[in-house]
Amino acid sequence: MNIFRLFGDLSHLAAIIILLLKIWKSRSCAGISGKSQILFAIVFTTRYLDLLTSFISLYNTSMKMIYIGCSYATVYLIYAKFRATYDGNHDSFRVEFLIVPVGGLAVLINHDFSLLEILWTFSIYLESVAILPQLFMISKTGEAETITTHYLFCQGLYRALYLINWIWRFYFEGFFDMIAIVAGVVQTILYCDFFYLYVTKVLKGKKLSLPA
């Protein structure tokens, strides 16, 4: 494993835990898109079905289980425990506009036409756009709490580090996976606008608010 991959995983883990702790400590999920979190839970579930069929390493298995467990815990906090604080009116992105085309694409463009492979491909495509309901929510309300922006930054950083990891693996191991790379590039691009706002506002101590 190279350093970019490791820090990518850790950044991903940080994002997930930041969000979970934010909701838990503030007893509120205001400003958080429950729809994005459901999409991430679907992403982890469909991608990590190989937990049942193959063992790679202790690191691999434990990280997968932590990601799945945390994502379901987050969904539980939003839709059950702190449901009263959930801002459903602003979380109005139509997820079927993501799931249906992504599902179709996974059936059409995959490495192998088998159930597990199509679900893996589906999870890769879905992950690349799963943050859209959250970004849509921020664009609707025009602002985000600082801790929410840290969450988004770690999510975007994770993707950017994975891209570097793939460049590394291509040069040193001759390995590349076109499906993962294209989806990863798309996903990273979605964060670019946010990265700009994060650097120019949040890191200078200002709250992230969009011009009206």
Binding site: R5, H12, D50, I56, N60, M63, Y162, E173, F175, A180
Partner: peptide
Amino acid sequence: DDDDFRKDEL
């Protein structure tokens, strides 16, 4: 093989 490489990633 390539499949193992891919499944190794999260």
